[in-house]
């Protein structure tokens, strides 16, 4: 893995990375678009873009023209998160009413409806092998792991209370869990909370490992590097993106540049760049070697709630793609090279 990273580094020195706008769909939804992910390609179709919105619908789009494939209804209150199974056959969407709907991507048949009251549902992610679905549980201070074969609750990973705090503490000693991320090997799971701490779990042993500190404002998005199972990126309302060594509990780097909350972060499939979306209405591309912002896209007119790099695989997907969604109801697609 280290070799590969080194190779990437080399490449980055030769080619300046950049984003080029390909296509933008205004009014892609009837209201703010809050969630986006790519559904990996299957044998019979290319990858699809999956978006969720305050208008209570989930929509599927075919790239690169962003043609609307289908609109899924059935959610109440806004759709806050969407996730796609690594095999591309099934996907999950969740809304503010804390229901998770798992559905067949191609047929829109409901596979399962998940809820674990009183736990809420915020960000969801399938693990890299597709065996589990992790769901950030909000005020329950836990992450629920669902088995994707039986759709039974597999385990609940709870963040331990800090010692010495009383349950009646006005500050609310409970961590409100907003975001989750799987390490590329599927062994670790990180979750980010409202108070800015990030908790790391050993999934197989269902054990809390440690906290990563550095943020003091909500961490709304987390992502592991695809090549380095220790390297974790976090996006926070403090306007910064942090790089952590998630195993060594160390903050490796800070990238600042957004002028408001950083709402989302995703890492490019080559591991050389990350993209972030922010309340300052911009999408930024960051070169991880330089640890600096190399490009700022200003095509959205409101907060950018989601960014997603298209995963590699399938046919005709030689080119990198990045999608972003925003409160301005639009979806944008960029070429990443």
């Amino acid at each position: 893995m280290a070799q590969r990273a080194a190779k990437n580094k080399k490449e980055n020195q030769y080619f300046a990375m950049k984003l080029a706008g390909l296509k933008s769909v205004d009014n892609a939804h009837d209201d703010s678009v809050w969630a986006v992910t790519w559904v990996p390609a299957t044998a019979n179709r290319p990858p699809l873009l999956l978006t969720g919105s305050l208008d209570e619908t989930v929509r599927l789009w075919r790239s690169d023209d962003l043609v609307l494939e289908r609109t899924n209804t059935g959610h109440c209150l806004g759709v806050a998160s969407v996730a796609a199974h690594p095999l591309g056959s099934i996907a999950a969407s969740s809304s503010l009413d804390s229901f998770v709907r798992v559905f067949d991507v191609d047929s829109n048949a409901t596979v399962a409806t998940l809820e674990a009251p009183p736990s809420e549902v915020w960000q969801m992610r399938f693990d890299p092998k597709g065996a589990f679905l992790a769901v950030a549980g909000g005020g329950s201070a836990s992450v629920k792991i669902w088995d994707t074969t039986t759709w039974e609750l597999f385990v609940t990973l709870s963040i331990p209370r800090p010692e010495g705090s009383k349950p009646t503490d006005k500050s609310g000693s409970k961590k409100f869990v907003l975001s989750v991320a799987w390490s590329p090997d599927g062994k670790r799971l990180a979750c980010g909370s409202m108070d800015g701490t990030i908790s790391v779990f050993d999934v197989l042993r269902a054990k809390f490992l440690h906290h990563l500190e550095g943020h003091f404002m909500p961490v709304r998005s987390l992502v592991y590097s695809p090549y380095d199972p220790r390297l974790l990126f976090s996006a926070s309302d403090d306007g910064n993106v942090h790089m952590y060594d998630a195993e060594g509990k160390a903050l490796i780097g800070t990238m600042s540049g957004h002028s408001s909350w950083v709402l989302c972060v995703d890492v490019s499939p080559d591991g050389g760049a990350i993209a972030t979306g922010s309340s300052d209405r911009t999408v930024r591309l960051w070169d991880l070697n330089m640890r600096a912002s190399v490009q700022t896209m200003g095509n959205h007119t409101d907060q950018v709630w989601g960014v997603a790099f298209r995963p590699p695989g399938g046919t005709d997907v030689r080119n990198g793609r990045l999608a972003s969604v925003s409160d301005d109801k639009s979806i944008s697609l960029y070429d990443y090279s």
Binding site: D31, L54, G78, L96, W122, G138, M194
Partner: peptide, 12 residues
């Protein structure tokens, strides 16, 4: 709708 937006911004 406004409240839902607010919840989305301040989930806790």
């Amino acid at each position: 709708k406004t409240l839902l937006r607010a919840i989305h911004l301040a989930p806790s």
